[in-house]
């Protein structure tokens, strides 16, 4: 299963990666646990997603690597990463742009500075100019508008790209009947919302859910249960109907018996023609291996 498995520092063993990638340690935006992100040379931030299954290993040459995870590095909007920072330090006062990225606990925030432009920050903050430089103040209202925009953009992408929606995240998913064209708009929205809420704190995603008018998990579960009951009821109904119309189990013996009868037309004609003729075995004796002449 694919999970937002934020990269563990131990994975890199303290080595800098080649390919112009540097790793930085900053808290993840949802749980605020220190996680490793990758900073590309151009300032792009990548997160690592791990596809992991139990009992999976890699064979590399002659060696076996017990960690069988597949890691995907995917670009991440840095605004997600600085939301927790803004909430903490720029909630009440306007903070100059340069000072936004200062954190004693996580010095690596400084490196994100180059990945974010003031214009981007404007979308989630109120701003004003102080002494020729921009200062920002966290605005939950703007953050939610921004998140809603993100979600609808993602929804549109899901609808057009034909991405399959995972079963556990959709309410009235019906296996096999799903076709990309008929994916429900709301299902896509829900899926998009689920993706976005992986990157924001729970209370924010809850607010976003209300804005988007999506049912809560609790409501969804109830709906799911009734759906399942319906489905199961349907299955039970079907089960009673589907019964073998013919009994094949007893036919094996019969088939053997009927084999001679199933001989070709030619064979039956031949058998008919043989009537009145002595058996050839009455002329020739069976040959034993010893009595070969």
């Amino acid at each position: 299963m694919l999970s937002n498995h934020f990269l563990a520092a131990s994975l890199l063993g303290g080595r800098e990666l080649d390919l112009g990638l540097r790793y930085i340690t900053i808290p993840d935006p949802k749980y605020e646990q220190p996680q490793l992100y990758i900073l590309q040379d151009g300032g792009r931030i990548l997160e690592a997603l791990a596809f992991s299954e139990p009992y999976r290993s890699w064979f590399i040459g002659e060696a076996v690597l017990s960690d069988g995870r597949v890691l995907f590095l995917t670009p991440l909007d840095p605004l997600f990463l600085i939301i927790p920072l803004l909430q903490k330090f720029a909630d009440r006062n306007f903070i100059p742009f340069e000072d936004l990225f200062f954190s004693e606990a996580y010095p690596d925030y400084q490196k994100v500075y180059h990945s974010v432009s003031p214009a981007q920050v404007k979308t989630i903050c109120n701003h004003k100019e102080i002494n020729g430089s921009l200062a920002f103040k966290y605005s939950e209202e703007k953050v939610l508008i921004w998140l809603k925009l993100k979600t609808t953009t993602l929804q549109n992408f899901i609808m057009t790209s034909g991405v399959r929606i995972p079963l556990h995240k959709t309410a009235n998913y019906k296996a096999s009947s799903i076709s990309t064209a008929s994916i429900d708009k709301e299902q896509c929205l829900r899926h998009a919302f689920n993706i976005v809420s992986d990157y924001v704190k729970d209370y924010l995603s809850e607010k976003l859910r209300e804005i988007l008018n999506l049912p809560s998990k609790k409501e969804l579960k109830e709906q799911c249960d009734t759906n399942e009951e319906e489905v199961e009821g349907g299955r039970a109904l079907k089960k009673t109907k589907v019964e073998p119309l013919e009994d094949y189990s007893g036919a094996i013996g019969d088939v053997k018996d009927s084999k001679p009868a199933a001989a070709t037309v030619k064979q039956t004609q031949l058998a008919k023609a043989a009537k009145g003729t002595k058996s050839i075995m009455s002329f020739f004796s069976k040959k034993t291996n010893a009595g070969k002449d």
């Binding site: 001989a263 064979q267 058998a271 043989a274 003729t277 050839i280």
Partner: peptide
Amino acid sequence: TEASWDCAQGGIQLQAMDNSHVSL
């Protein structure tokens, strides 16, 4: 309908009766 092909160093031989056992 079916027959055994006996292969040996000297060659291949086949001997079989028809299903009604009147010819060989």
